[in-house]
């Protein structure tokens, strides 16, 4: 069948019944400011790492919130922890601690604690 270069991919949909939200829950518990992001993108705009690579802290958090954690490991390892994002965040999100908690969460996932 001719698909005209397109397919209907089921994976494209966020199936909220199936995604794994345990990482989001873990981070929220340890760093409550994870909840208050308004997706303004100040963090990503000021990001020192984003000068060199595709990395958006805003997007990373959003994906975790939606339970899409497949790429988190790869993404989060790009952060240099410079802390500029914390200084520009209009909501007072504790960005560095979120990154450190993502690290912890990933470790816990590998040792099956989460």
């Amino acid at each position: 069948m001719n698909k005209f270069g397109y397919t209907i991919s089921r994976d494209n949909q966020i199936d909220y019944d199936k995604v794994d939200r345990s990482m989001a829950a873990f981070i929220e518990k340890n760093e409550p400011t994870f909840r208050i992001c308004i997706q303004c993108g100040s963090c990503a705009a000021s990001c020192s790492a984003a000068n060199f690579t595709r990395f958006s802290f805003r997007k990373l958090c959003l994906l975790i919130r939606r339970g899409l954690t497949d790429d988190v490991q790869k993404e989060v390892s790009k952060c240099m922890l410079c802390g500029k994002c914390r200084l520009v965040c209009p909501r007072g999100v504790n960005t560095r601690n979120i990154i450190l908690n993502v690290h912890q969460a990933l470790h816990k996932t590998t040792v099956y604690e989460l």
Binding site: G41, A44, A45, A50, R54, S56, R58, K59
Partner: peptide, 11 residues
């Protein structure tokens, strides 16, 4: 410097 959040890219 701004992130075009809808494009998901810094600008």
């Amino acid at each position: 410097k701004v992130e075009d959040t809808l494009a998901g890219r810094p600008m």
